[in-house]
């Protein structure tokens, strides 16, 4: 299948060696690796935050050549930072992701993420997990073709981790590309493809069932599985 997102030469000095990447529409891909392995640098590079290196295409369009409005429609980026200092209500925060007001879209996202009871609460007064959901809803709002999410499941309890994976699966099924970094390795089964990074180098790129048994996996994380449980090597 023709890739929806095609990137060449994505890298960051001292944090990520240059790599090429293509992602097919409808696919969900996880980026895993120990702390400092370059997951965030990869996502920032693909979102064109990390500086001018390489090039990223969505369909036939080069991201660097797009006006902001077009980029907002095609690319949704969620940073790992969850702070919000302005007293903006959850409903308005979600609407910030939209180019034009669309109350129906906002309400349906609030509903999907069970934020409706908090819709008028100021985002700076939410718990970290609640704010994580509100910020994710903002990234999803314009129905972007490509979603680049940095640790969207951190600070979330299992119910929310699984619910959000389900929501992202529905988004991907509608034709989007979902690429996200992930810490909880128990959730790998939810993905079609896994990229394993270590010290800024792409070590493996495979389906989740293959990656967990790959010796590179144990070597990278310095742990091994023992009947479904992790233990130190």
């Amino acid at each position: 299948m023709k890739p929806l997102l095609a990137a060449t030469g994505i890298g960051a000095a001292e944090r990520l060696a240059r790599l090429d990447l293509s992602l097919a529409p409808g696919s969900m891909t996880a980026v895993i690796g120990p702390n400092g392995s370059g997951k965030t640098s990869l996502l920032r590079g693909l979102a064109r935050i990390e500086g001018p290196g390489g090039s990223v295409w969505i369909g036939d369009e080069n991201l660097d050549a797009m006006v902001p409005a077009r980029r907002a429609a095609l690319l949704g980026f969620l940073p790992a930072a969850r702070e919000m200092i302005w007293p903006i209500a959850v409903r308005d925060l979600v609407a910030l992701g939209l180019a034009k007001p669309d109350d129906g879209r906002v309400e349906s996202l609030l509903d999907d993420l069970e934020l409706t009871p908090l819709a008028n609460r100021q985002a700076d007064r939410l718990s970290t997990g609640e704010r994580a959901r509100a910020l994710l809803a903002r990234a999803l709002a314009p129905r972007p073709a490509v979603l680049l999410l940095d640790e969207p499941l951190s600070n979330l309890d299992p119910y929310w981790a699984l619910s959000i994976l389900q929501l992202l699966r529905r988004t991907a099924a509608a034709g989007a590309v979902v690429l996200m970094s992930l810490h909880d390795l128990h959730l790998l089964d939810a993905f079609d493809r896994v990229l394993l990074l270590n010290q800024g180098v792409l070590m493996a790129d495979a389906a989740p069932d293959l990656i967990a048994t790959d010796p590179v996996f144990a070597e990278t994380f310095r742990v091994e599985t023992d009947g479904g449980r992790w233990r130190l090597r």
């Binding site: 920032r44 979102a47 064109r48 935050i49 991201l63 797009m66 006006v67 902001p68 980029r71 907002a72 690319l75 980026f77 969620l78 940073p79 930072a81 702070e83 910030l96 910020l135 903002r138 680049l148």
Partner: peptide, 10 residues
């Protein structure tokens, strides 16, 4: 929404 989000929007 943060400088990174603004940069991702171009």
């Amino acid at each position: 929404l943060g400088e990174d989000v603004l940069a991702s929007l171009g």
